[in-house]
């Protein structure tokens, strides 16, 4: 059984298509990142997965259970971090721990207090009066203390300082791998994400751009910088090309093809070039290369 299994998910907002026939599965113990620009449908997917939105068509199964009607037992297995680290901000750190500890049978407050010990918060400080970074640690600590099997984190990096983001990511990966947890994260900030995720799912407006293990993606997706002889000959945007960005004679060519294939391709298409050079990309570069800058 998969932790998450979405089959033929289709959704519209009014008449506007969000996506059609989205399929993906998350194996237990894996960390999957759903990456995409703002508005690409990440939150829609999260909402459907958590039962806050009934999809137009298709289904989303969480541990085999239709997400439209999650049972309490299944919900107990899911740790859910809402976009913006939303929590009951009218409580202080002790009150919220007291509240949640009464809700979950497997509650273990140790990781919560461990994370909080690193923060400069007073015991009576309400969550509403904390910084964004501090709130993210509270929200994460609560999810860890819940000890769920599946962690669903919606855009957790939004609003975080680089330090907090790193802290969050490293702690999360360490925790997930040590305890064999499944993690589903969404993000539109790609920086540092390769430190966290095993598999990625890159989404653009109403379609999937990539769906594979991060390692595979990073080795197979390539960028070549090509200097053209004649910038006036139109550069083909089909064939091997996934994305092309051209500034006069300088072309950034994104493809899954190897160097030899690209050279052959350019010769066949009749594009003379001065040089071709493969560029090393990190995940963020690759993401931008894949989705384009706009």
């Amino acid at each position: 059984m998969y932790a998450i299994e979405c089959n033929n998910l289709t959704h519209y907002y009014g008449k506007k298509l969000v996506y059609e026939n989205l399929n993906f599965k998350v194996e237990e113990g894996k960390i999957l990142g759903l990456l995409g620009k703002n508005g690409a449908g990440k939150s829609t997917t999260i909402n459907i997965m958590n039962g806050f939105l009934h999809p137009y068509a298709g289904e989303c199964l969480i541990y085999g259970e239709d997400s439209k009607h999650l049972t309490p037992a299944t919900k107990e297995k899911i740790g859910f971090l809402i976009e913006g680290h939303v929590q009951y901000a009218f409580m202080n750190v002790h009150q919220i721990e007291k509240f949640y500890s009464g809700c979950y049978k497997r509650w273990n407050s140790e990781p919560y207090w461990e994370l909080l010990s690193k923060l400069q918060v007073t015991p009576n400080q309400k969550i509403s009066r904390m910084s964004c970074g501090q709130r993210s640690q509270v929200a994460l600590g609560l999810i860890l203390a819940q000890d769920p099997q599946l962690l669903v984190l919606d855009d957790f990096s939004m609003g975080l300082d680089p330090g907090y983001r790193r802290l969050f990511i490293d702690y999360l990966r360490e925790y997930a791998k040590a305890n064999n947890k499944t993690v589903f994260v969404t993000s539109h900030i790609i920086q540092d994400m390769e430190r966290l995720i095993d598999d990625l799912l890159i989404m653009d407006y109403n379609r999937i751009l990539a769906q594979q293990p991060v390692d595979e993606f990073m080795t197979k997706f390539r960028q070549y910088n090509i200097i053209l002889d004649n910038p006036d000959i139109p550069f083909p945007k089909n064939g091997l090309s996934v994305n092309v960005e051209q500034i006069r004679a300088k072309v950034s060519f994104y493809t899954y093809a190897e160097r030899k294939e690209v050279e052959g391709y350019l010769n066949r298409e009749g594009i003379p070039f001065k040089s071709i050079e493969e560029i090393n990309m990190n995940l963020e570069d690759a993401f931008i290369g894949l989705t384009g800058k706009y």
Partner: peptide, 16 residues
């Protein structure tokens, strides 16, 4: 407080 930032999602997500 439940409606602000759609916190009701937290409540609905509780194992109940």
């Amino acid at each position: 407080p439940e409606v602000l930032n759609q916190r009701i999602k937290l409540t609905f997500h509780l194992p109940i």
